[in-house]
Design a protein around this nucleic acid. Structure first.
Lengths: 188, 188
DNA sequence: TAAGTGAGTCAACACGTGTTGAGCGAATCG
DNA sequence: CGATTCGCTCAACACGTGTTGACTCACTTA
């Protein structure tokens, strides 16, 4: 055969994404420390040395496995903002991209991941704050929105609290709506 | 000298707590995986082997370093409950006992810690739920209270978001109060 | 077809880890 | 005082880790 079924470049790209996919899954399940290069290699059906050769280091692999998602609110009035924030619950409870889970999973034990989360949340807080009625506390209020949602997400996704997992996302959103509206009002 | 300045039992108890204190500090700072027996031993000015001899294993040391605290609400009407929940913010933002930080720090990466947190939160949710006006969603509402507070705590204590750290606890409580009241009402 | 490139493997190193058993020496006890 | 307990240290083992360099061989290219 003079023509291979797959070009060398194609093979390379294929195994590279196979490694990255396995890494994302493992990192998001077990966190940075407990994920081993060897396990990633095995998941990708490849030799550990190849993972190093392609990504240079475990850290670098981790960095590539994470990808930020801005997910900034575009609303400008309060009601729309609350609706928009609550709409993200659909995603946060069940449909979060694995690259995000990677980041969240390790944020409490890996300083690099913590930094990443911190700047991401700061960006979100700025975005929410901008959509809030002007007040001295807009930024603080925004931070409470964002961290409250973070807490619910953690309870659902990582702690797997039954009470949360048994409730449909829109029921949760319905309960949260009045609370969020109250939090958005400058003089609650 | 026939009488030593410290009895053998006293010495033993002293170094035991010295080890436990060092362990709590390190576990709460770096989490389970990144805390080494050697580091704990050094912090306590003691040989690593002694830590093993006294506590049996790293896991057992970790378990002893954590101690649960119920912190269940005793209120029976809604307003008192909200006040009581908000009062815990003083503690949650800055004054959390190290044994609790230990637990929280590792909950995303260590399954045993995750279990511990899950049952603790479940207990809190039950407590809050009991103090809520009877409704089908009382338990779910309670879970949202608890996880929202968890999120704020994480943002403050672990992610160290400036917006939260710069705000006094009572300001945060004041902003949260109307939101929590709305969340407590059966038909918001 | 012959030289060269590069995907992928193999075996090993250096290191840090939890954990163990033998031993020392001071406090206890009869 | 002599025997013994026990707090504590020392040195080591066994293992898993990230990482490396030499190597093989299928594909590419001239």
């Amino acid at each position: 055969m003079s023509t291979p079924r797959q070009s060398r470049a194609d093979r390379r790209r294929a195994t590279e994404t196979r490694i990255l996919d396995g890494a994302r899954e493992l990192f998001s399940e077990k966190g940075f420390d407990r994920t081993t290069i060897r396990a990633v290699a095995t998941a990708a059906g490849v030799d550990p040395a190849l993972v190093m050769q392609y990504f240079g280091s475990k850290r670098e692999l981790f960095t590539q496995a994470v990808q930020a998602f801005p997910e900034l609110p575009t609303a400008t009035d309060t009601d729309a903002l609350v609706d928009q924030l609550l709409a993200t619950l659909d995603i946060k409870l069940g449909g979060l991209p694995e690259g995000t889970l990677v980041m969240l999973r390790s944020m409490l034990t890996d300083p690099a991941a913590a930094d990443h989360v911190r700047v991401t949340l700061d960006r979100q807080i700025d975005g929410v704050s901008a959509a809030l009625p002007a007040a001295e506390d807009a930024e603080l209020r925004a931070a409470l929105f964002v961290t409250a949602l973070l807490g619910v997400t953690i309870g659902h996704q990582f702690l797997r609290l039954d009470v949360l997992r048994d409730a449909p996302a829109d029921r949760i959103a319905a309960l949260l709506r009045p609370a969020f509206k109250a939090l958005a009002e400058p003089q609650g």
